[in-house]
Simulated scan of single mutants.
Amino acid sequence: MTFISHRFVETAGGLKMHIAEAGAGPLVLLLHGFPESWYSWRHQLTALAEAGYHAVAPDQRGYGRTGGPEEVDQYSILHLTGDVISLVHALGEERAVVVGHDWGAPVAWHTAMLRPDVVRGVVGLSVPPFRRGPRASTTVLRELLGDSYYMLYFQQPDLPEAELARDIPTTFRRLLAGSAVLGADAPPLVPEGGGFLDLFRDPTALPDWLTEEDIAVFTAEFEPNGFTQPLHWYRNLDRNWELTAAWHAARITPPALLIVGEKDLVVSSPHARAGLAELADFVPGLREVRWLPDCGHWTQQERPKDVNEALVGFLDSLDG
């Protein structure tokens, strides 16, 4: 049986990152999304280890046992990608494959763009890579979707974290297992006078891929430090746009794979699907867009066997 072990690794920036790891061999970093932790990769850690890889899932900056600084500006995309590169080197490696889900996917895509010398290959789950736009992110979102769009709701201080921390088990039950109130093609707009969790129905029962024990683990990871630092990732949208000006129109060149669920709200709209068809120039090394039938947003937890098969196939295809 393959076991998952835990330890802390100090990065070059002085951040002590908690990592879960398994196996030995070429390094594969697994970057979780919002609001998650290393535990989101519990099925991949052992599968990748058994396939001959050193699988490492950190609690990223601001999350879980890693924690992080209080200042909002310490959660820019340059800090997040810097943590990834620093972790690769702290683990004694020069190169790695970087895999990210949800918010971890933009971190993985940006790491591949900024440091292709370090990234052997990149995999995004749920969230495809997006080109840098001509204007600040929140300006564009506000014009397109209005102030009630959930990412703009997250810009407010204090209110979103208080909502999410009010009843943490309920927060995870709704986010992971609740169905969308507004439907598959509707943008996630927070109702007037309501909160982010109002976008999701309370599930009458958990799906077969999620247990009460899983909910308890996620709850325990967030009880000590809450949601403020994870929300700071959203509060850097405009700062990220400013900081990445030097890479405007840059391409993502390492070998790449995108895995998405057919029922994932991130890619379910016709506009989003049309954007996927235009990735070839932006990501010239894209090998495949792997669609998972009957799969929602929590890709690697909902369909671990399919995700593991896709990851191992991609990893085995890479040159040293």
Score class of each variant (00 low, 15 high):
Glu212Phe: 13
Asp316Gln: 12
Val283Lys: 10
Ala105Val: 09
Gly285Ala: 04
Gly146Tyr: 11
Thr171Leu: 11
Ala216Gly: 10
Ser137Val: 15
Glu143His: 08
Arg201Pro: 00
Asp59Glu: 06
Thr204Lys: 10
Arg61Leu: 15
Pro69Lys: 15
Ser86Gln: 14
Phe196Ile: 07
Ile4Thr: 15
Phe282Gln: 13
Arg95Ile: 06
Gly285Lys: 02
Val217Tyr: 05
His110Trp: 11
Val312Asp: 11
Val307Asp: 03
Phe314Thr: 07
Pro35Val: 14
Pro157Val: 09
Gly296Asp: 06
Leu318Tyr: 11
Leu27Cys: 12
Leu189Pro: 04
Glu36Cys: 01
Val307Thr: 04
Arg173Phe: 05
His101Glu: 12
Phe200Gln: 01
Gln60Asn: 12
Val127Thr: 13
Gln60Leu: 14
Leu114Thr: 09
Leu243Phe: 07
Ile4His: 02
Glu50Ile: 03
Val283Tyr: 06
Asn225Cys: 09
Asp59His: 03
Glu93Asp: 02
Ile85Phe: 08
Ile4Pro: 00
Leu91Gln: 05
Leu78Cys: 04
Leu279Lys: 09
Lys263Ser: 12
His271Leu: 13
Ala277Gln: 14
Val72Tyr: 03
Leu199Asp: 02
Gln229Leu: 11
Arg135Trp: 14
Ala165Cys: 07
Thr244Ile: 13
Leu315Val: 05
Gly133Phe: 02
Gly33Ile: 03
Glu143Thr: 06
Tyr39Arg: 04
Glu70Leu: 13
His43Ala: 14
Pro169Asp: 01
Arg173Gly: 03
Glu94Arg: 11
Phe222Glu: 04
Glu309Asp: 08
Thr46Ile: 15
Thr2Glu: 08
Ala57Ile: 03
Gly193Val: 12
Ala256Tyr: 06
Ala205Ser: 14
Val267Cys: 03
Leu257Thr: 08
Pro129Ile: 07
His54Ala: 12
Arg42Ile: 07
Leu315Trp: 04
